[in-house]
Design a protein around this nucleic acid. Structure first.
Length: 880
RNA sequence: GGGCGCGUAGCUCAGCGGGAGAGCACUCGCUUCACACGCGAGGGGUCGCUGGUUCAAUCCCAGCCGCGCCCA
């Protein structure tokens, strides 16, 4: 016998271990079944499971478990990425505790340390995924720093270089002065800030008392100014173009140039140009042939190109000193408050400096062409579709991708430099030497590039590197491209777009056919969860408190397309209640000996009750399957929830009680078998969302099963529809509900049993009443049902059900005024609906232009309403 | 400033051209032999505002108001 409530803790670990040991998560490359592939977005090796992970991995697991049940050969490819900067920071912090830096260890020893850290601390998220019930193919787990994946990275780098799509260039990059590395545009966070705009006067050379006023938000960069730009059509400055101004403090003569970048509407219309420290100025400088003077060092302190007195000053200190000096010189025109955005490094949290360095770049614009086409013509489909716009916008304006990082943890760039700086990009050092020999005609010493690659560079190869590429493995042939990529919108650029670039370029095909973009999980009040706000909810805490299944059901039920999820504990609690409800329904079935019957044929059941529930079961399965396939997770959850609770528990099991307690052995046997069958189908349907409680019940409810629930076939049935049975049961539900309503409204004591009379019942209704006498008796607490022609006495409540009027003699309890009020209210409601319909049906435009079936449907509805209204009026008249 | 999205019951949200829905919360009743993590019955909405298209608009279009996100 099952316990009274479901204890999640007791069963979760046991079933998970059993599944994993049985190998049921594994794909089968030998299989004849159609593959279904999801590449798991690899979490950071440093990561631990947060609510966003819980959502994305729950949805992926729902898909995987569903498709596994439909018979597809599923591959859910798991793994982690090496998170270059984040991981290096973690290990450097540990070293700092020992009073050391990575430089004390040296590169090789430090990298060993990182590997060591990963061995000991790296498995957190994998363990947490198991708690969540995720069912990826664990033995195929990959890490972006694995040998195979590293080979893929090297090969891709070399090939891109040979194709001219990977190049070294001196450009402005986003420089992180704390981490001492370049980062990509995407790793920069623009924070709104209340800044200031300082207006400086630059004296025009050889013109007494003439100044050009320029504005700046970063005064310290003025030391690197090499020009002043004005708009070519700005009349105020026409004569100045070609002249020279004297850069204050530095006393450097710099030219005034005409460039459309200068906006005549903004400030004075003149703008100082610092090509080495501003992205826009860099472009102006290129166009106008201005000098580039770098005045900052790698710590963002002023360097040797600044006047001696400022050298070595931090940029913010320098800012204050420059402003002070300008003021002293009488060259500070004014200062204004200036709302602006300031770039911060997303890892370091310090202000990023545009800095001129040599870096490696990928020609992203070229690689973006095919992915854009693929989305345009539907080879890759975004769900919801509007995310394609976000994708297009970025891809069509894409900048060169800076992929080199000045850190140690990552894939080292396969480039070697000869004595004169000639670059040899090869897969191995030997090949580089061979190249050098050919180039120089003699063996020379080569030095390898010290930089490593952006982590996203290796992640971009994930859909094929995990399958063995560059080897042509059977897995690669079978599981590429994947079916769907499931992720949040925040990494469309970081990862989705880049996988598409690499997939097209190296595999010649899309990496996945669909991209399902899900929402963000927020806290109850709609705030983004963050450590600093302290509103983070740990998914595993919730799972511990209410069961993993309840958490998964909550996330699934709330995953409506295009809307963020406001996570609230009360919802999780509600779905915990649902799991308990299911548990108790199973317990009831068990108590009534509802055991599965071998060879049970759902199409062969005879009673209306059983034909009805069988039809509804089949319908629920097909609707739920369709919802999952369309990524309508909330619909899938709702469909199965309502069927389980509101149809199976509330009605079917209640209807079954009189059968179980009756003495029709045949009906009892059929109903028991049907109940067992339906319950099994419910467990099956719920399994993708609630794997643990369903597997537990699957095991508990039968002495032996041919297989575990996780590999049970998804219920797909043809020909079980039973419209007459459904109509009959709907009628019965309506009748019982109506009687209960009147009882409640008339304050009939719940325990009191009534006798009812029925007037004007058709033959069909009489037959139905006969069939379901016992059900009405139990569920509406009615003892006798009599058919009458006579007008009943005044002490009765009357209910109109289709053509019939049901009379409840309530002489002792009836309050005539209340009954009159009730009937009048009903009549008024019907009249209201009738008026609306009548108006519609008297509209000639409607009759002429609306589809015939719509007109017919409305006519029928009107006559039904009128008939009901008339019977209600008769009932009212009878009371007097 | 540009783009995207969202305003539907107290709250959270489905629905998206032809009869306003769910969960939670709320009210009333119930130790009904699976379940009080429950059972039964209820109350509650000019579907943001204003126009337009249509025989018909919560749903399509335009404008406005409010909110959020992304990009500059």
């Amino acid at each position: 016998m099952l316990d009274k409530t479901y204890d999640a803790h007791a069963v979760e670990r046991r079933h998970y271990e059993r599944w994993e040991q049985a190998g049921v998560f594994a794909c089968n490359p030998e299989s004849n079944a159609a593959p279904y592939t999801i590449m798991m977005p690899p979490p950071n090796v440093t990561g631990s499971l947060h609510m966003g992970h819980a959502l994305t991995f729950t949805l992926q697991d729902v898909l995987i478990r569903y498709y596994r049940m439909t018979g597809r050969d599923t591959l859910w490819q798991p793994g982690t990425d090496h998170a270059g900067i984040a991981t290096q920071m973690v290990v450097e912090r540990k070293l700092a505790d020992e009073g050391k830096t990575r430089h004390d260890l040296g590169r090789e020893a430090f990298v060993d340390k990182v590997w060591e850290w990963r061995e000991h601390s790296g498995g957190t998220i994998q363990r947490q995924l198991r708690h969540l019930g995720a069912s990826p193919d664990w033995p195929r787990e990959r890490f972006t720093m694995d040998d195979g994946l590293s080979r893929a990275v090297t090969k891709v780098f070399v090939q891109l270089h040979k194709q001219g799509l990977m190049y070294r260039d001196k450009r402005l990059v986003n420089w992180d002065p704390k981490l001492h590395t370049a980062i990509s545009d995407l790793e920069v966070e623009q924070r709104p800030t209340d800044g200031q705009m300082w207006y400086f006067r630059y004296p025009v050379k050889d013109e007494q008392d003439r100044f050009v006023v320029v504005g700046t938000t970063r005064p310290e960069t003025m030391l690197g100014d090499t020009g002043v730009a004005v708009h070519p059509e700005d009349d105020r400055y026409t004569d100045l173009v070609g002249k020279t101004v004297i850069l204050p403090i530095v006393e450097r003569p710099i030219p005034v140039v005409a460039d459309e970048y200068a906006d005549p509407e903004k400030g004075s219309g003149a703008v100082k140009i610092t090509p080495a420290h501003d992205f826009n100025d860099f472009e102006v400088g290129r166009r106008c042939g201005l000098e580039m003077i770098n005045v900052l060092d790698r710590d963002a302190r002023l360097n040797e190109n600044a006047p001696a007195e400022f050298q070595g000053l931090d940029r913010f200190e320098a800012r204050a000193r420059i402003v002070e000096r300008m003021e002293t010189l009488g060259l500070l025109e004014k200062v204004e408050p200036n709302p602006m955005t300031v770039p911060y490094g997303d890892r370091s949290g310090v202000v990023i400096e545009p800095w001129l360095t040599d870096q490696w770049f990928v020609d992203a614009a070229e690689l973006a062409k095919e992915p854009v086409k693929a989305v345009e013509d539907g080879r890759t489909r975004f769900v919801p579709a509007h995310w394609a716009n976000t994708f297009f916008e970025w891809m069509r304006n894409i900048q060169p991708w800076c992929v080199s990082r000045q850190i140690w943890w990552g894939h080292r760039i396969p480039a070697w430099y000869g004595p004169d700086g000639t670059i040899f990009v090869e897969e191995t050092e030997d090949e580089a030497h061979a190249g050098a020999l050919a180039h120089y005609g003699e063996a020379v010493a080569l030095e390898r590039d010290t930089d490593v690659l952006d982590t996203w560079f290796s992640s971009a190869l994930w859909p094929f590197s995990t399958l063995g590429w560059p080897e042509q493995t059977p897995e690669l042939a079978r599981y590429y491209p994947g079916d769907v990529l499931v992720t949040g919108f925040d990494i469309i650029f970081f990862w989705v777009a880049r996988m598409m670039m690499m997939g097209h370029h190296f595999m010649g095909d899309v990496p996945f056919r669909e991209v399902y973009i899900h929402a963000l999980v927020r806290d109850e009040t709609g705030q983004k969860m963050s450590k600093s706000k302290g509103n983070v909810i740990d998914p595993l805490d919730l799972a511990g408190k209410y069961g993993t299944d309840a958490l998964r059901f909550t996330l699934t039920a709330m995953a409506a397309q295009g809307r963020d999820i406001k996570m609230s504990e009360s919802r999780v609690q509600g779905y915990r209640n649902f799991a308990t409800k299911l548990w108790n329904a199973a317990r009831f079935c068990e108590m009534n000996n509802c055991v599965g019957v071998d060879g049970f044929d759902p199409a062969g059941v005879t009673s209306t009750l059983n034909r009805w529930i069988v039809a509804r079961t089949a319908d629920t399965a097909s609707r739920m399957g369709a919802a999952i396939e369309a990524y309508r997770f909330n619909d899938a959850a709702q469909v199965v929830y309502q069927f389980t609770w509101n149809t199976f528990c509330d009605w079917y099991l209640e209807f079954a009680k009189p059968v179980f307690n009756g003495d029709d052995a045949a009906a009892k046997a059929e109903t028991r078998a049907t109940a067992a069958w339906v319950l099994d189908r419910i467990l099956t349907m719920l399994h993708p969302i609630m794997p643990f409680v369903t597997e537990e019940l699957w095991e508990a409810l039968a002495d032996s099963r041919p297989h575990a629930l996780i590999v049970a076939p998804w219920p797909a049935y043809e020909g079980l529809a039973a419209p007459e049975a459904e109509a009959e049961m709907d009628w019965l539900v309506g009748l019982i509900t109506a009687i209960r309503s009147v009882r409640s409204e008339m304050n009939v004591p719940p325990a009191a049993r009534l006798s009812i009379q029925v007037k004007d019942a058709s033959e069909a209704t009489r037959a139905r009443l006969q069939t379901h006498r016992a059900l009405v008796g139990t569920l509406a607490r009615v003892d006798d049902i009599a058919h009458v022609d006579a007008v009943p006495g005044a002490g009765s409540a009357q209910i109109v059900v289709d053509e019939a009027t049901v009379i409840l003699p309530l002489a002792d309890v009836i309050d005539l005024d209340a009954e009159r009020a009730r009937l009048s209210r009903d009549i008024a409601k019907q009249d209201g609906d009738i008026a609306k319909l009548a108006k519609k049906l008297s509209n000639e435009g409607f009759l002429a232009k609306a589809p015939a079936e719509v007109v017919a449907e409305n006519r029928e509805r009107l006559s039904d309403l009128e008939a009901t209204r008339d019977r209600l009026k008769e009932a009212l008249a009878r009371i007097g």
